[in-house]
């Protein structure tokens, strides 16, 4: 695919807009692509990046990533016109809400991007959204205005430098009448969310992250366990989105 834009969104977060040949119609929110770094010689493992936005009409695919090492640093240096090898869409994305009513969307850090495509889809389907986005501090914050198009947005930072101070769970009143929760972010956040809503009548979905090799389900590198720990599930194939009941966090 062709790079259209590669823009820095915050301290270490970049948005990569791609165009060109891609099965845009097949992609759903919560799925990911596996992107080759360079010619793959120095970096044999592709980088799994969640789909932040996919637009079949304009033929654009947006991937948002955090620069953490050599591979993502190389990616951050790509310019418009550069060609990238993109494999996807892969994995199982967010299912549609089973019940009407207000949907809760909670993202943390680099877990925020896949929720953008989700919010876009749910907004278009007429769902009312309550969106909570958590970051470490104000330098990490991105896309809060973009999300506001689809629902009311609450921003939290751990140090209180922007929005509410504290973790996302502190901004969530369990007595509100939310029917479905979609979340993506660090595992402690996902765990805290599940505990926060324990016993409440809310359907919860989490998008999990793990180091991957093949990205297609062949190598069993990125597994997680079911709640009783008796069976493994491949995050790249059966996930990355799971319901609370399907996995142990």
């Amino acid at each position: 695919m062709l790079v259209e834009e590669n823009k820095q969104l915050s301290r270490d977060i970049f948005a990569l807009e791609l165009t060109g040949e891609f099965p845009y119609e097949k992609a759903t929110s919560g799925q990911f692509v596996n992107l080759l770094i360079g010619d793959g010689k120095g970096h044999p493992l592709r980088r799994p990046l969640s789909i932040a936005s996919c637009n079949p009409e304009t033929k654009t695919l947006t991937l948002v990533y955090r620069v953490v090492g050599d591979g993502t640093k190389w990616l951050s240096e790509r310019c418009p016109g550069d060609v990238l090898d993109v494999l996807g869409p892969l994995g199982r994305g967010f299912p549609a809400p089973q019940n009407p009513g207000t949907v809760l969307v909670v993202g943390g850090g680099v877990g925020v991007p896949p929720l953008y495509q989700l919010a876009k889809e749910l907004g278009a389907a007429g769902f009312k959204l309550h969106i909570v986005l958590g970051f470490k501090n104000q330098d990490d914050v991105f896309w809060t205005r973009e999300f506001a198009e689809f629902g009311d947005v609450v921003v939290c930072t751990e140090d209180g430098s922007l929005g509410k101070k504290g973790f996302v769970t502190e901004a969530l009143n369990v007595n509100e009448n939310w029917t479905t929760l979609y979340s993506c972010g660090p595992k402690p956040m996902l765990k805290a969310l599940k505990a926060h809503f324990q016993g409440r009548d809310i359907k919860g979905y989490v998008s999990l992250e793990e180091r991957m090799a093949c990205g297609v389900g062949a190598c069993w590198g990125c597994t997680c366990l079911d709640p009783d720990g008796s069976a493994a599930k491949r995050i790249c194939k059966e996930g990355p989105v799971f319901s609370w009941e399907e996995v142990s966090l």
Partner: peptide, 26 residues
């Protein structure tokens, strides 16, 4: 018998290659 394999992370990239410790999950 079925095997769950090792805890994650169980794959990582290194220069020119990768390390895996899947642990015979099958």
């Amino acid at each position: 018998y079925p095997r769950l394999g090792n805890p994650t992370p169980r794959v990582t990239e290194v220069t020119g290659g990768m390390l895996n410790a899947i642990g015979l999950a099958n």
